[in-house]
């Protein structure tokens, strides 16, 4: 079983948004909808300031309220991995999953079904990294198998201090932020 994850280095991320545009074009994400987005968090008072920039997306959590709240099985975990996906042919658009996601990572497509980040599994199947990771100019986004101790993501998590977003929501996210 693969446990895919992302390790995003907030020290390298410059918030350029290339990840957002690469995702939109790679996946034909319709106008106004976003599978990934950027958050800037500034703390302190002038001139003692700190800023963290994060490229955020679905966390492909290990504990998935979006999958467990789905009444039809449309929201599911892809076989052999932890990639959380939506099957448009099963989705009723009831939005239980949209409401259940603490990260607001899901949205309704113009056609009516729910969509979200897929970790570009169509690319991953071919051994490529997701579009956002492949475009990042500072190589801040690293994708890989967390179950493999020799993968870059695993090594980064061993070497660096990291955090996840709102771990207290209890979803056990698989997108890590190096701090």
């Amino acid at each position: 079983m693969k446990k895919y994850g992302m390790v995003i280095d907030t020290k390298l991320c410059v918030g350029c948004g290339a990840c957002v545009v690469a995702c939109k074009t790679e996946n034909d994400v319709p106008e106004g909808l976003h599978r990934d987005w950027l958050v800037e968090e500034v703390t302190g008072k002038f001139p003692n300031l700190h800023m963290e920039i994060r490229s955020e997306r679905c966390n492909h959590c290990s504990d998935t309220p979006c999958v467990s709240s789905c009444p039809t099985g449309a929201s599911h975990i892809k076989k052999g991995s932890n990639i959380v996906k939506v099957d448009p042919n099963k989705c009723t658009g009831c939005q239980a999953c949209v409401v259940s996601c603490p990260y607001n990572a899901r949205f309704v497509m113009p056609e009516g079904y729910v969509s979200k980040c897929t970790f570009c599994d169509h690319r991953v199947e071919k051994g490529e990294s997701p579009a956002c990771a492949s475009v990042c100019p500072t190589h801040a986004i690293v994708f890989g198998d967390l179950n493999n101790p020799m993968s870059r993501v695993s090594r980064l998590l061993r070497a660096r201090k990291f955090k996840t977003i709102i771990p207290e929501a209890g979803t056990d996210p698989n997108v890590y932020y190096l701090i």
Partner: peptide, 15 residues
């Protein structure tokens, strides 16, 4: 200012 090689090299320096 996101001129590609400039940002990339800045990232390298940070790394």
């Amino acid at each position: 200012n996101t001129h590609s090689s400039q940002v990339k090299e800045f990232g390298d320096a940070l790394a």
